[in-house]
Amino acid sequence: MIKLNNVIKCFGTQQVVNSLNLEIPDKKTVVIIGRSGCGKSVLLKHMIGLLKPDSGSIVVKGKDIAKLDTAGLDDIRKHFGMLFQSAALFDSLTVAENVGFALTRFTKKSPAEIRQLVKEKLALVGLENVEEKKPSELSGGMKKRVGLARAIAMDPEIMLYDEPTTGLDPIMSDIINELIVNLQKQLKMTSVVVTHDMKSAYKIGDKIAMMYEGRIIEEGTPPEIQNTNNPTVQQFINGSSKGPIQVLG
């Protein structure tokens, strides 16, 4: 379980996360929704220790990761996989080297075993014969899938997805959603997905939490979120410009 208690984070004078509380249950997928720039990705980066909160705690596997040193963080990060919004593949490495990155560094597997595992992980995300390609030769959807294969290479217990469908066409978005659902079924991971794509949220989430003004203002199952009386949530999920959420400019 991941437990965030009273997390506060400011950048300069701007308070991005404001006394936020959230629990991510084991082996479930929680989707965090909210407007672009509301701090969803910032929150995700706190869960893996890329950012430290100004105050509050983030407990992962019984440890407050905000208080861990570099070595402690590295240990706990070996239980995580993360898919970045831009996939964040290493430009200078091939697809096989990207997917096998952690396997090469942290396991004693032979190059042949790693090659085989890379092939299997790529097959899991529906890719084949791309091992020797460089990231610059891949389409946006393929990059995301390679990023996903890299993230699951070490069979993580916790998977973080930052805007997995942003920038993809609707068909590719659905393919990625299907992949996330299938991976969840096969690997039984605890997953946190940050998105503003409601179709994606309904499809992949066991629970949806809406972030607004630095806090979680509503959480529930997809049907509960769809039927909520909260006008802010309703405005967001219906994509309406009129409502309590002020749209500047």
């Binding site: 890329l50 990060r77 964040a88």
Partner: peptide
């Protein structure tokens, strides 16, 4: 392009 963050998430300094 978040590649440095990706390194950190893979326990690589």
């Amino acid at each position: 392009t978040e590649q440095v963050d990706a390194l950190k998430t893979m326990a690589t300094n």
